[in-house]
Simulated assay, not measured.
Amino acid sequence: MSPHRPIRALIAITLAAVSACAGLPRGNAVPGDGPGQPRRVCQAAREPRELPAAAALVDSAGLVNAAANAWRHAGRPAGDVVFSLRYDPHGLNVRRQVIEHRVSRVLADSLQALAYAHRRTTPPADREWGVRLRMQLGEQPALKVERSVVCPPALRDPGMGPFSAAANRGWGDVRDSSPAPSMASAGTVWLRVSLDAAGNVTGVRVDRGGVLRGSDAHLLAAVRTLDFAPATEDGEPIPGEITIPYRVRGP
């Protein structure tokens, strides 16, 4: 056999994907991040396992008093504001943004600044995590912690590069001068692909279905030719993982 023998790789358009918050319940398909981007099944995050109290995230008494003053100064509008908050493993608030508001943008931004000013450091964790903080405005604003919405990574375009046939026929060819990975017999293995927040491939491993023989470098190079949209949490990119089927012919 020629060393240029193609590996037939099946990249399903519908992907079995998991995000950084693994084991999430089935959710609803939503549009991608822009024109031509894939639709994703987004879900409520399960991390952290137990939602913290608002008082663990902010000085709730101080924030409520300051928010009430800002609300009165703005003319007592009815409505609420939802902030997306993300914490690093050391418990530091590394991101905060307004994702919903039913008041003026000026007031919403002022309340976000107050939430930051009254932030607290949370207990250490194994990984980054995020939640939402909803503020219902009034004379005594009410705070409620809710789960973030996580969208898994997705393949932006299954017809790109050496996988150009995938979009139409579900198959693609990968050719390389190095020996191709193979298995004792033809079959499909499922590859777990790790991605950073920019959608770059940071690692590939066999998740289930067999053990590949041959060049791991060849396999990694093949997967790196694909263009992935990263996972998102409340619309912001985060690291994640995606599982894709990879079908290899036997020797």
Rank of each mutant, 00 (worst) to 15 (best):
T202E: 13
A166S: 15
P141K: 00
E241V: 09
I242D: 10
T243M: 12
W190K: 02
D216F: 08
T243D: 10
R192E: 15
T232C: 10
V150P: 09
N168L: 12
M160L: 09
P245S: 06
S185Q: 13
Q136H: 00
L191C: 07
G172S: 12
L155F: 10
P141F: 07
G210C: 07
P230D: 02
G138L: 07
S185K: 04
D196G: 08
A229W: 00
S164D: 11
G172V: 06
T225C: 11
D234M: 04
W171A: 04
I242T: 12
G203T: 03
I238R: 15
P141E: 03
W171V: 06
A142C: 00
K144C: 05
D216L: 09
R205Y: 05
V211E: 11
G209Y: 05
S148M: 01
T232N: 05
L191H: 11
G214S: 05
L155W: 08
G199Y: 03
L212M: 05
R208A: 15
A197R: 12
G214T: 09
A231Q: 06
H218P: 00
N200I: 00
V193P: 09
S178A: 14
G210H: 02
R247H: 11
P230Y: 01
G235A: 00
A197Q: 13
R147D: 04
D227M: 08
R208I: 03
I242R: 04
D173R: 14
V193E: 13
V206R: 08
V204K: 04
L137H: 07
S182D: 05
R205I: 14
Y246R: 01
P181I: 07
V211T: 14
S182Q: 07
R213C: 02
W171Q: 11
R224W: 05
L212A: 09
I238S: 08
P152H: 04
W171C: 00
A222W: 10
E146H: 01
S182W: 13
G161Y: 02
A166N: 12
F163C: 09
N168Y: 12
R205A: 15
V189K: 01
S178Q: 12
S164H: 10
E236D: 13
R205V: 15
A197F: 04
V201F: 14
L143V: 05
S194C: 01
R175L: 14
A165L: 15
R175T: 11
A221G: 13
V189E: 05
D176G: 03
R156V: 14
P230T: 03
Q140D: 06
S215R: 14
S178P: 00
P153A: 04
P158L: 12
T243Q: 09
G240W: 06
A186R: 07
M183H: 02
V211C: 00
H218V: 15
M183D: 02
D207C: 03
M183R: 05
T232Y: 06
G210R: 01
T188V: 12
P153H: 11
S185V: 06
V206F: 01
V145H: 08
R208G: 01
Q136E: 12
G199M: 06
S185Y: 03
G161H: 07
V211G: 00
I242V: 15
E146P: 00
A186E: 14
D227A: 04
L226I: 08
P239S: 06
E146T: 03
A229R: 08
G240Y: 07
M160S: 10
A229V: 10
D234A: 05
C151L: 04
L226W: 03
V201Y: 11
I238V: 15
R147E: 01
A166W: 07
G159L: 09
A184R: 05
